[in-house]
Design a protein around this nucleic acid. Structure first.
Lengths: 136, 136
DNA sequence: CTGTATCCTTAGAGATACTG
DNA sequence: CAGTATCTCTAAGGATACAG
């Protein structure tokens, strides 16, 4: 960069967008966080996450594996056993993600308030004729 | 928390998921970053972002406004002028987001490599019969 | 200039059944 | 147990036209 001009399309902004496209989906962060303190098996994760479908667990894990955030180890036993574990890269991602989590924690109420105020404001706009409630 | 047990469904993890659902979409982070150094007008942003549709710019800005991250100021002139600006809350979000951005910057190559290796590995699996390339 | 409204096409995601 | 294969539904997002 030769100037103060922040080019939104290149460099770091592209990077954030790409990472967000990866971990911004419905399950990735949950999975990364779950693997924080050690390897887990497939069905173990499926039970822990509550609401995730087998399909989405597979797809999400494949995606994370492809990006090098998670490693997959197959034990050729019967019945088969597969362990998923965070790679060093995956672990390193936890820091910025947890920073975001703490921001979320700290501001959840603030955001809820803002939403409530916004909704009241916009509701008021669609009913600008005095303060009376609509009486059918 | 009374124990070492990390409940994935409650507390901070819920928070991260909700924030990610908000800023994890295609445009929000880009917009927050663009507003970093001051207010911008609607069309100004539309030109800067490249590829965003008028519809999505409106929707994304409404979402950010609803959550209290962005403020919207209308100047009732002709032609109309509307300024969007980060609220203090919006500014505070920039820190964890930029942390994520720096992680992305630092690991883009690493990730690209992992993807390439993964793709080669999986391509190899679907063609396990020797090393010869498929010759039509 | 700053939006809405509408239509349309995909990508995300759940449910279910089946396989090694 | 750990997946894959389909089918289906919905929501996200783009294109375009119109309005204040």
């Amino acid at each position: 960069m030769t100037e103060e001009h922040h080019d939104l399309q290149s460099e770091s902004c592209r990077g954030v967008s790409r990472v967000l496209a990866r971990i911004g989906d419905k399950w990735s962060v949950l999975i990364v966080m779950m693997l924080a303190d050690g390897p887990r098996r497939f069905n173990e994760m499926k039970r822990m996450i509550d609401g995730i479908s087998q399909r989405m667990l597979t797809l999400t894990l494949r995606g994370l594996e492809r990006d090098g955030l998670v490693s997959r180890t197959v034990y050729p036993t019967i019945p088969p056993r597969v362990d998923y574990e965070l790679t060093p890269l995956g672990h390193s991602l936890r820091e910025p993600v947890m920073a975001l989590g703490q921001w979320a924690q700290a501001n959840l109420d603030h955001i809820a308030d803002a939403q409530a105020r916004f909704d009241r404001r916009t509701a008021a706009e669609s009913e600008p004729a005095g303060l009376r409630p609509v009486a059918y």
